[in-house]
Write a protein that binds this DNA or RNA. Structure first.
Lengths: 118, 118
DNA sequence: CCACTACATCGACGAACATCTATGTAGGAG
DNA sequence: CTCCTACATAGATGTTCGTCGATGTAGTGG
C-alpha cells in the first residue's frame, strides 16, 4: 500500500487519469433530459410520425394511430413540447403539433460529436 | 358507451389521415431503449468520458470522477453495456470499458434521419 | 493458505413514470 | 344560452428507476 487511500492515486495504479475535458454536469443533465424525452416507444413513434409529415398534425390524427387513451397521448405530447422537440399550435378547437427542426439539429449535434465534419 | 371510441372518423373531420410510413412499433421500442440508456446524466457523462478517451478506461478511474458509490457506477455501466453502447474488457483484476463506435453510429443514424443529405 | 483489492450482485427504499378514468375548459353550431 | 366536440388537467395505481449499504466473487501477492 504505497502511497494512497485517496481514491485518485489508487486510480493511477491501474491506468491513466485523463477525464476533465468534456461536458459539465449541468450539460449532461440537459442532454439526458433530451434523451429521456425520447426514451419511450410511444414518443419515438410520435416524433417519427411528425418528422414524416410536411405539415402540423392534430392530436386526433395522432391519436388514431395509437391504441392509447387521449389523455395519455396528450401527456406524451406535453412532454415532447416541454423538451423542445415539438411545437404546439392552436387552430380553433384543434391542437396541431409539429417537429421543431432546431431541436432535431441539436440532438444530432449531441450525438454526432465524434464524426460529423460540418 | 363512450363516444370517444369512434376516434378514426372524428379524425377525418379535421385533417388528413397520413401516417403509416415510418418505423414499426418494434423498431420504436428498440430506438426508445437506446435513448433510455442515455436518459440519465451519469450515463451521459460516462459515455462522454469514454468517447473522449482513445483507450479503454477502468472502473476505478471512472469512479474517481463521480461522487457516486461504486455499486451505482457498476450498475450504470452494466446498463450501457446491455444497450450495446459500451464494451467491457477484463484485464487482470480490473474491468476496462470503452465506447462501441458502431453503436454511436447507429444512434447518429437514428437521429439524423432528416438532414444528413446536406 | 490467507489477506487484500477491484468489481459485481443483492435487497431495500423513495422518487419518477406510464397509464387509466373522471372531470374541467374552451371553441363552434344551433 | 345550450349542447357537442377537441383537448387538457387531476387523481389514482402499478411499475420501473437510481441510489445505497451489505455481501459475494475472482484475481494478486506474500
Amino acid at each position: 500500500m504505497s502511497t494512497l487511500t485517496a481514491g485518485r492515486q489508487i486510480a493511477a495504479d491501474c491506468c491513466a487519469p485523463l477525464m476533465g475535458e468534456g461536458l459539465s454536469p449541468e450539460e449532461a443533465g440537459a442532454t439526458a433530459a433530451l434523451f429521456k424525452a425520447l426514451s419511450d416507444p410511444t414518443r419515438v413513434r410520435i416524433v417519427n410520425l411528425l418528422a414524416g409529415s410536411p405539415e402540423p398534425v392534430c392530436l386526433c390524427d395522432i391519436n388514431s394511430g395509437f391504441e392509447l387513451s387521449q389523455p395519455t397521448l396528450s401527456h406524451h405530447l406535453k412532454k415532447l413540447v416541454a423538451a423542445g422537440l415539438l411545437t404546439r399550435e392552436q387552430r380553433g378547437t384543434w391542437a396541431f403539433y409539429s417537429i421543431n427542426e432546431e431541436a432535431l439539429r441539436r440532438l444530432s449535434d449531441v450525438v454526432g460529436q465524434r464524426e460529423i465534419a460540418s
